[in-house]
Amino acid sequence: MNHSHLSPEAEFRYFLTWFREFSEYEKSDFMNILIQWLLKTNEAHLNGIESNCSKPTIFHCRMKLFREWSSKWNDQLRSKFIEKLNELDPDFVLKMNEMLEAKLEQPEENENVEVAVKDDIEKIENGLTEMSVNEE
């Protein structure tokens, strides 16, 4: 399916549908990505991602789409997204808010850790690109 023609509202609905399917483990990974999205940074740590990840999962593909799609969402849609997540899973949003507050209170993290996480994300995204090229 070609997702390039979807409206932001359609992207929003797709992702809410996917969120309903996430395991607790995936929700934990998504929470890290969501916090970075709210902070408007690119760093994120995903549980269970190895530095030599050559076969990304559907979840990883969805996270890549979330990053692409949500970067274009306006503030109103961003707020609505958090509201809908809260309706679907209030405990998730409560924990996310607690983690977000803690993150905002922390001084800048160790640069070496930041670089390692960015390297892991780049490897995943490169794997996704390779996977899509091989599928064509």
Rank of each mutant, 00 (worst) to 15 (best):
N2H: 01
H3C: 14
H3L: 15
S4M: 13
L6H: 03
S7N: 02
R13G: 02
R13F: 13
Y14N: 13
Y14F: 10
L16V: 02
F19I: 02
R20K: 00
R20Y: 00
E21H: 11
S28C: 09
L34C: 01
W37H: 00
L39C: 06
K40F: 01
A44I: 11
H45E: 11
L46I: 03
E50Q: 12
N52D: 05
C53Y: 07
C53T: 07
S54K: 09
T57S: 02
I58R: 09
C61I: 14
R62S: 04
R62H: 14
M63W: 01
R67N: 06
E68D: 11
W69S: 05
L77T: 07
R78Q: 06
K80T: 09
K80Y: 06
I82K: 00
D89I: 01
D89K: 03
F92M: 02
M99S: 04
L100Q: 04
E101W: 12
E101M: 14
A102I: 15
K103E: 12
K103H: 15
Q106D: 09
E108M: 12
E109I: 10
E114Q: 14
V115D: 14
K123G: 11
I124N: 00
E125N: 05
T129M: 15
E130P: 07
E130D: 05
S132D: 15
S132G: 14
V133Q: 15
N134P: 08
N134V: 13
E135A: 09
